[in-house]
Simulated scan of single mutants.
Amino acid sequence: MPSITVNVDADLKARMENHPEINWSEVTRQAIQEKIEALEVMDELTGESELTESDVQDIAKKINESGRKRIDEESA
């Protein structure tokens, strides 16, 4: 099986060492697997899209603004 190297800062490494019962390689492998699967779903959904990156960013901005507005209204 191929290997990869993951760099973490000293604080995170120390915190990881506080949990020797955790197989951090497996945690990392699972996180990468989940991310790849999510990207593959996105590729399937957008594969034939004619939207540009700018279009996608504009839509994301509108969604985020709408979500913030809803949260503000609910907490008022």
Rank of each mutant, 00 (worst) to 15 (best):
M1G: 15
P2Y: 12
P2G: 11
I4T: 12
I4S: 07
I4L: 08
T5M: 08
T5P: 01
V6N: 03
N7H: 10
V8T: 05
D9M: 01
D9V: 01
A10R: 15
A10V: 14
A10M: 10
A10N: 14
D11C: 02
L12H: 05
K13P: 00
A14K: 15
M16F: 08
M16S: 02
E17T: 02
E17R: 08
E17A: 12
E17P: 01
N18S: 06
P20F: 04
P20H: 03
P20E: 03
E21A: 06
E21I: 00
E21G: 05
I22T: 09
I22D: 04
I22V: 15
N23G: 03
N23H: 14
S25Q: 15
S25P: 03
S25K: 07
E26S: 08
E26H: 10
E26N: 09
E26K: 11
V27C: 02
V27G: 02
V27M: 03
T28K: 02
T28F: 10
T28S: 07
R29E: 14
R29W: 13
R29G: 06
R29K: 12
Q30M: 09
Q30S: 07
A31V: 02
A31D: 08
A31R: 12
I32P: 01
Q33M: 12
Q33H: 11
Q33K: 15
E34F: 05
K35N: 09
K35Y: 10
I36D: 04
E37V: 02
E37R: 07
A38H: 05
A38V: 01
L39Q: 13
V41A: 15
D43A: 13
E44T: 03
L45P: 00
T46E: 10
G47M: 02
G47D: 03
G47N: 04
G47V: 00
E48Y: 14
E48G: 13
S49R: 02
E50Y: 08
L51E: 13
L51N: 03
E53M: 00
E53K: 00
S54L: 03
S54C: 00
S54G: 09
S54P: 00
D55Y: 06
Q57Y: 03
Q57L: 14
Q57A: 07
I59T: 07
K61S: 13
K61P: 01
K62F: 14
K62A: 09
I63Y: 13
I63F: 15
N64G: 00
N64H: 09
G67C: 06
G67V: 08
R68A: 10
R68I: 08
R68F: 09
K69D: 09
R70T: 05
R70A: 14
I71R: 14
E74Q: 12
S75G: 04
S75R: 12
A76E: 10
A76L: 06
